[in-house]
Design a protein around this nucleic acid. Sequence first.
DNA 1: TATTGTTATACTCTATAACTATA
DNA 2: TATAGTTATAGAGTATAACAATA
Lengths: 149, 149
Amino acid sequence: MPQSTSRLGVLDQLTGYHLRRAFGAFGADFHIAMEGTGLRQVLFAILSIVSNSPGINQSRVGKLLGIKRANMVSLINELIDLGLIFRMEDPRDRRSMSLTVTAAGTALIREGLKKIRAHEERMLAGFTDDEKQILLDLLRRIEARAPAT
Amino acid sequence: MPQSTSRLGVLDQLTGYHLRRAFGAFGADFHIAMEGTGLRQVLFAILSIVSNSPGINQSRVGKLLGIKRANMVSLINELIDLGLIFRMEDPRDRRSMSLTVTAAGTALIREGLKKIRAHEERMLAGFTDDEKQILLDLLRRIEARAPAT
DNA sequence: TATTGTTATACTCTATAACTATA
DNA sequence: TATAGTTATAGAGTATAACAATA
């Protein structure tokens, strides 16, 4: 197995290296795809979680997405400033802030999702449906090894 | 196909989302694995490229790794300060800085690689050799879509 | 003109520590 | 005590613009 075939040497056989590069490629194209919407990867993810579980609080969103409580604050503030979600005190537990997506938020999710699906098709052009599912499966199994947030 | 099975909703079917999470999981474990060596993912990658192509200049390393010229400067300075590489003017093109790994750098690559291999085995525990190769193959095909640096 | 290295700068992501208010 | 939200802060990754020296 000629590793000198690649100018990358040992790197070429490291999953972590290729994960980093593939993530970078996806991120760059995502950024271009979402231009004009004001959404970044994290913001869309949060918006989508809140939309899926109306009334959820910040900490739970953070746990689902692997984002620390402290870092959630400014992200939620951004989404509120953009008029995409609103936040109110949970009457049953006044420590919690209950989050809900606004109508504008719902509309932006729909629009964003369209752009994201096009972006994913672009990045996965040439992949069969089988390969796409296998990739998702393998990535999910790696995620399962992540430390709790 | 019940997407409501997952609290992640649409996210769960997005490759970009899982790529982000899997990358995060790998990165966190890499960080722990390399504690004490002073190496981060990028530093090891640069070191490894320079070791594989002695005399290479900063721009070429950056192009191989997808790192911008401007951001290479401080990274190379770090490696020099750590005594892992040295830099000298290329006599044939005095704009270029020729990079070479020191003996200490070579030793640290060897030590780091051992730790990285253990880290990868940990993250890919339960993966067959076939699955590991398939994952590498799929990731490489995604990388190929990255914009030039 | 184009390229290499460089400086300066800004934005984002991630992490930790410490505080408050509630439970 | 434990948890939710918050503030402050620091380190790291990534991006652009502009400049000097060299090709």
